[in-house]
Simulated scan of single mutants.
Amino acid sequence: MEQRITTLIQESPYNVHLFIKNLTTNQLLISHQLETSFSSASLIKVPILLALLSYIEKNKLSLNSTLTISPTDWVDFSVISEQRLTQSTFYDLLLWMIITSDNTATNVLIDVVGMEYLNDYFQHIGLQDTLLQRKMMDVERLAKGIDNRTSARDMAHLYTQIYQQELLTPPYNKLVIDILSRQRIHDSLKRYLVEDVRLAHKTGGLDTVDHDVGIFYTNAVDYSMGVFITNVTDNDQARQLIGRLSKVVYDQLVKRKGEKDEGYRYSHDC
């Protein structure tokens, strides 16, 4: 598995950051450029999700509380904007922020607590390289080089904590996994998987980056995997690479183990 992954990375024209972790044994299996930070794109929305749920918990707010949305909040690539919504619940905004990567929902939620609160929370949960410096679709700040950042190391740490359900109270920990499992964008890590595997994940993409990171729940083993590609010139080609890397890992950790187990049972049944 490691050799095949190394070859795919070396053959890629892009810059690849990667981690693969066995969550059942808490063992980091493979990593590449773990500590180098890069543009997070929409990956930043997952720690925002956790921060907002922590805020809701601490302030004893209801997920069904309604927030006002100003028309000035509407931005592109948003089902909130498409519907011209002027109010929504915490729950719906959190859900849309993840499952369709809704930018309006994200910006409204950022305004609830502010960037300083969010960055403090990121540090509090052990994220060393994750920083929110602009709202979604703020192309002016992005043009000035002011961007949101993270690293493969931070994403590995974050998804381990999500898997272990140790950041929030039990109902909210389960809610995080449920929301991530309802992701509607499946053109990267699940791209070449035939099986209906459960994946709790989040994608992120800009013109020059493509990312996908999440937790695979399988009968053989639970594992997390993140592939983060920068210097991209062809987004679909980058997503194909993520899909190929993911299939190598899935075939090794899940399919081969399943085949060995079937062979063991067959030989003993005979």
Score class of each variant (00 low, 15 high):
Asp187Lys: 07
Ala200Gln: 03
Gln165Trp: 11
Lys144Trp: 15
Tyr159Ser: 01
Ser151Gln: 02
Leu206Asp: 07
Arg191Val: 01
Ser181Ala: 11
Leu109Asp: 04
Met115Phe: 15
Arg153Asn: 08
Ser81Lys: 15
His124Gly: 03
Gly126Pro: 09
Glu140Asp: 10
Ser88Arg: 14
Thr89Phe: 14
Arg198Trp: 12
Leu180Ala: 04
Leu118Glu: 03
Met115Asn: 09
Asn103His: 10
Asp92Gln: 15
Leu199Tyr: 12
Phe90Trp: 13
Tyr117Cys: 06
Leu189Arg: 03
Val213Asp: 01
Met97Asn: 08
Asp207Tyr: 14
Val197Tyr: 12
Gly114Gln: 11
Asp92Ser: 14
Met137Ser: 05
Leu85Ala: 10
Asp210Asn: 09
Glu195Met: 06
Met155Cys: 01
Arg141Cys: 02
Val113Pro: 07
Asp196Ser: 14
Gly145Glu: 09
Phe216Thr: 00
Gln183Asp: 00
Leu142Gly: 07
Thr89Asp: 09
Lys190Tyr: 07
Val209Thr: 07
Tyr159Thr: 00
Leu127Trp: 08
Thr106Trp: 13
Asp147Val: 04
Val108Met: 08
Thr208Phe: 13
Thr203Asn: 10
Tyr172Cys: 00
Phe122Lys: 01
Trp96Gly: 00
Gly145Phe: 15
Leu142Asn: 11
Glu82His: 13
Asp196Lys: 14
Gln87Pro: 03
Gly145Gln: 09
Leu199Phe: 13
Ile162Glu: 04
Tyr91Pro: 03
Asn107Lys: 11
Trp96Lys: 04
Thr160Trp: 14
Gln133Glu: 09
Gly214Tyr: 08
Phe216Asn: 00
Leu193Lys: 02
Asp111Ser: 14
Glu195Pro: 03
Glu166Lys: 13
Gln128Pro: 01
His186Val: 04
Arg134Cys: 05
Ile99Trp: 13
Phe216Lys: 01
Asp207Cys: 07
Tyr163Asp: 00
Thr150Lys: 12
Leu132Phe: 09
Gly114Glu: 05
Trp96Met: 07
Ile98Ser: 02
Gly214Val: 02
Leu142Ala: 12
Asp178Met: 08
Gln183His: 12
Ser151His: 04
Asn148Cys: 06
Tyr121Glu: 01
His211Asp: 02
Arg153Ala: 08
Ile177Gln: 11
Ile110Tyr: 15
Tyr192Ser: 00
Ile98Met: 06
Leu142Lys: 12
Asp138Ser: 08
Gly205Cys: 06
His186Leu: 08
Ile185Cys: 05
Gln183Pro: 03
Leu167Tyr: 09
Thr100Ser: 11
Gly214Arg: 03
Leu193Val: 01
Val197Asp: 06
Tyr91Phe: 15
Asp187Tyr: 13
Leu167Ser: 04
Gly214Leu: 08
Phe90Asp: 07
Asp178Phe: 15
Leu109Trp: 13
Asn173Thr: 05
His211Ser: 03
Gln161Met: 12
